[in-house]
């Protein structure tokens, strides 16, 4: 509710927020300068906790404009479908953030909808002619350059994206993705379970509400997971004042895809497809299901289409 009011208020507030100065400016700019220096190769440069590189990259970019995804979205009516007796099950997409840029999609209101989601992502593959440090550093530099250009183009101050580089035998693979899907289920009393399944390349990650230091996100194994009502309510349901309440999920590049890119130098990025299906079942037998189809174009740019199933 009141999304336009909130957005306008935050826009005005951000305009009136002073920029950094004094000692704090020095502290921040020092780190930004460090971040612009080349990064030496390490065998597994970044794992899931690629936040370190993300921070360096973001600091180096120094491009904290605002990318408002809502402006790119089609109009989506928010009325609730009469066929749902358990409230408006929704998918909140948290993407190229700003302060809390997000969009809610009502699955029940759009039985035939196929809506392009404003997720962003770039996959870059750099071949390694040999295994010398020089080659690797050059490849890594190239990836960083492409990522930086892409993110600069977005002029985002995203809260939710990750950047990572994985070293394979024949290639370095870099990817930056902006996508967090929050599945909101208002009527948890009547909930039976939530099933998330995935076909094709990729992996889904789930965020438990009480994240630990060691395992901030959990990978969905075997391409499918069924969460019971108790698991959802007690472990996964995250309440975030800014972004919403629900099951926080994230699509990411999987090892299988990295291996495929490593093995085949002619692997076309446009062959990468992944379909995530969320199915919510209630104790009275009602089921609601919808999908997000993720793909890449030949340039490695990610796209996602939301569909009711």
């Amino acid at each position: 509710m009141y999304k336009k009011v909130k957005n306008e208020l935050r826009r005005q507030a951000l305009q009136k927020t002073p920029r950094v100065s004094g000692a704090l400016a020095s502290a921040i700019s020092e780190e930004s300068e460090k971040a612009q220096s080349p990064v030496r190769y390490q065998p597994l440069i970044l794992k899931r906790t690629a936040a370190a590189v993300l921070a360096v990259l973001i600091a180096a970019l120094a491009i904290f404009g605002t990318f408002r995804i809502s402006a790119n979205l089609p109009e989506v009516p928010s009325s609730e479908s009469p066929r749902s007796v358990h409230g408006q099950i929704g998918l909140i997409l948290v993407s190229a953030a700003g302060t809390d840029e997000e969009e809610t999609f009502s699955v029940t209101a759009h039985p035939d909808a196929a809506i392009e989601l404003p997720v962003k992502g770039l996959l870059v593959v750099e071949p390694l002619a040999d295994d010398s440090d020089r080659t690797r550093i050059a490849a890594e530099h190239s990836i960083y350059g492409k990522m930086r250009d892409y993110l600069q183009y977005l002029t985002t101050e995203s809260r939710t994206h990750r950047v990572s580089i994985r070293a394979m035998t024949n290639v370095l693979v870099g990817y930056g993705t902006l996508n967090t899907f929050i599945l909101g289920v208002p009527d948890t009393d009547a909930l039976e379970n939530i099933r998330i399944s995935l076909e094709g390349f990729g992996v889904m990650e789930l965020m438990p509400a009480d994240m630990s230091d060691l395992h901030p996100w959990e990978y969905l194994s075997d391409k499918e997971i069924v969460l019971t009502k108790e698991q959802y309510v007690n472990t996964y349901r995250t309440d975030n004042a800014m972004q919403g309440t629900g099951l926080f999920t994230y699509w990411s590049v999987c090892t299988e895809l990295l291996n495929a890119l490593d093995k085949d130098p002619d692997f076309s990025l446009s062959d990468i497809r992944s379909e995530v299906t969320f199915t919510v079942s209630f104790a009275d037998g009602e089921t609601q299901s919808f999908q997000v189809e993720i793909s890449f174009n030949g340039s490695g740019e990610m796209r996602a289409v939301y569909k009711n199933k």
């Binding site: 951000l14 927020t17 780190e31 930004s32 370190a52 973001i58 600091a59 101050e157 809260r159």
Partner: peptide, 12 residues
Amino acid sequence: SALAVLYEGFRM
């Protein structure tokens, strides 16, 4: 380096 990110995201 995380400070710059925190600052941009939470200064307002």
